Amino acid sequence: SHCAGCKEEIKHGQSLLALDKQWHVSCFKCQTCSVILTGEYISKDGVPYCESDYHAQF
């Protein structure tokens, strides 16, 4: 499978399933500020955001 963030193949190591896609753990980050999302996040149109950036933009 391929990472939804960087589009590279996910080989051995940690990956996560979010928004119905596979991601490298380090690629699942806020679209705006690039903080790596480990806990709470909000998505809009399949794109992840941290809570503060989501509320600031939408």
Rank of each mutant, 00 (worst) to 15 (best):
S1P: 05
T32G: 11
Q31H: 13
Q57W: 04
C27E: 03
C30T: 01
W23A: 03
I10G: 02
T32F: 02
I10E: 02
Y41H: 05
A18D: 07
D45Q: 08
L37N: 01
L17T: 08
P48W: 03
E51Y: 14
I42S: 14
C33Y: 00
E8D: 04
H2R: 05
K29V: 05
I10L: 14
W23E: 04
L16I: 13
A56V: 10
Q57Y: 09
I42G: 14
C27G: 03
L19R: 05
S34T: 05
Q14C: 04
S52N: 15
L16W: 03
G5M: 14
D45F: 07
H55N: 11
H2G: 04
S43I: 08
C6N: 01
H2A: 01
S52A: 14
L19I: 11
V47R: 13
V47Y: 12
V47E: 06
C50A: 01
K7E: 12
C50N: 00
K29W: 00
S43R: 04
H12P: 14
H12L: 11
F58G: 15
D53V: 02
H12M: 12
Q22V: 10
A4S: 15
S34A: 13
V47Q: 11
Q31A: 12
C30Q: 04
E40S: 07
K11D: 07
L16P: 08
H2Q: 09
L17E: 14
V25D: 08
C6A: 00
S1D: 15
A4H: 13
W23F: 12
C3V: 00
I36S: 09
L37T: 05
D45E: 11
K29H: 04
Q22E: 09
E8K: 13
I42N: 08
G46M: 05
D20S: 10
Q57I: 15
C3P: 00
D20A: 09
K7I: 06
Q14E: 13
C30N: 00
S26T: 15
S15V: 13
A56K: 15
E9H: 11
F58H: 12
F58T: 15
C27L: 01
S15Y: 05
C33F: 00
P48K: 03
C50R: 00
Q31D: 07
E8L: 10
L37V: 07
C6G: 01
I42V: 12
G46F: 08
G5N: 06
S26A: 14
Q22R: 08
F58L: 09
F58V: 12
F58S: 06
L19V: 12
S43N: 11
S15A: 14
G39I: 04
L19T: 07
I36D: 11
S52L: 07
G46Y: 03
D20G: 13
E9D: 11
T38N: 07
S26K: 14
G13F: 07
H12E: 15
G39K: 12
G13N: 03
E51L: 09
E8V: 10
G13W: 06
D53S: 04
S43C: 10
C33S: 02
G39L: 04
E40I: 05
C30D: 00
C27M: 00
Q22H: 14
H2P: 08
I10H: 02
S34E: 13
E8H: 14
C27N: 02
V25K: 15
G39R: 09
E9K: 09
I42D: 13
L19H: 03
E9C: 08
Y54K: 12
G5P: 01
C3E: 01
Q14V: 03
F28Y: 03
Y41G: 05
F28I: 03
V35H: 05
E9T: 11
C3T: 01
G46L: 04
A4V: 09
T32Q: 13
P48E: 02
C3W: 00
Y41C: 07
L17W: 07
L16M: 13
V25C: 14
Q14Y: 04
T38Y: 06
Y54P: 10
Y49N: 02
K29P: 02
H2T: 14
A4L: 09
F28C: 01
G5Y: 14
I42Y: 13
L37S: 03
L16S: 10
I10W: 02
Y49K: 02
G39T: 15
A4I: 15
L16E: 08
T38E: 15
S52G: 10
K11E: 07
T32P: 01
E51D: 15
H55E: 13
Q14K: 08
C33W: 00
G46N: 03
Y49R: 03
H55K: 12
V35A: 10
C50P: 01
T38S: 12
S1K: 14
Q22A: 13
E51V: 09
A18H: 07
Y41P: 05
Q57E: 06
C50S: 01
S34N: 12
L16T: 12
H12K: 13
Q31F: 06
E51W: 06
E51A: 09
C30I: 00
H24W: 00
K11L: 14
S1L: 05
